[in-house]
Nucleic acid binder design. Structure first.
Lengths: 148, 148
DNA sequence: AACCCTTACTACATGGAATAGTAACGTTTA
DNA sequence: TAAACGTTACTATTCCATGTAGTAAGGGTT
């Protein structure tokens, strides 16, 4: 587990998009950080999230610390009104994170179950070609009918 | 979640083979049950597992109950020396379970991240064709060298 | 110095997996 | 029929991940 890479250890089959990899709150937080043009403090993120739902400042803080520990966020220390504080930014932009995570799942699947993955793909591509062919046949019949 | 289907909700990226879907003890137990030609009691499975490692009867029992609840094992009640007891057998044979589980992950991946999965495949196939072509070039050069 | 604010530390709840003891119960055996 | 045997239901604990959140300790600005 290299320090630079995001640590994703599991894929949640029922999760939608990012929530296949992250918890609900982690997902909300990282989306806020991705949307920002500059690094954000915990307070920044907290102010945005509290508009949607009641949440404690320390909940946001703990979860951002955890995203940092998991390698999805990076941070530096700054000085401000509250003393020393962290300023966070994403380690990878959204598309790169998704790409890396999906690749990790697929690599693991291929390594563990290469033959099953291969036959799934062959089956899937054949199925789609069949649908294309069916549609093509129908179209050809329809055109013949018009001319007939 | 139909009752007949195995309930797999997540894929563990670092897990090897079955342990990508199940815990260590769940994996050991279902392998024992798959290997048996007839249905097994908790006692049967316990006797096999205790040879490998110290474990409590009730641990085996609880885990088999959980595999039943998750739809991987089926069972009926029999009467025996200890009163009424369960006799378990697998709902799916090994290959079918793996195939079903892998398909669920792949379907979820395609639904959530179809474009990333597609480009991964194109990239992977191209990479393998490139390796084949490189090998072919080297072979052709070697054959030319022998004739020269 | 007062004020404001943050983080470290701590704790609880939930769910899943692993772990395991014992009361309650049922069947077989003597 | 009672004793013996063995199983399951019930219960509990630990660990991990995620979400939740209060407060003591500490630091910078006003």
């Amino acid at each position: 587990m290299r320090r630079g890479a995001a640590k994703i250890s599991q894929y949640n089959i029922e999760g939608k998009e990012l929530q296949a990899f992250l918890g609900p709150l982690e997902t909300n937080i990282i989306e806020v950080v991705w949307s920002s043009k500059q690094p954000l403090t915990v307070r920044d993120v907290y102010e945005k999230l509290k508009r949607r739902k009641r949440i404690a400042y320390t909940t946001v803080m703990t979860t951002m610390d955890r995203l940092y520990e998991k390698g999805l966020l990076d941070r530096r220390v700054e000085k401000g009104r509250g003393g020393v504080l962290y300023v966070y930014w994403p380690k990878l932009e959204e598309h790169n994170f998704k790409k890396t995570a999906v690749h990790e799942v697929l690599n693991s699947l291929v390594e563990n179950f290469g033959d099953i993955v291969a036959s799934y793909l062959v089956e899937r591509i054949s199925s789609e070609e069949k649908e294309f062919k069916d549609l093509k046949d129908k179209l050809e019949k329809a055109l013949k009918g018009k001319r007939g």
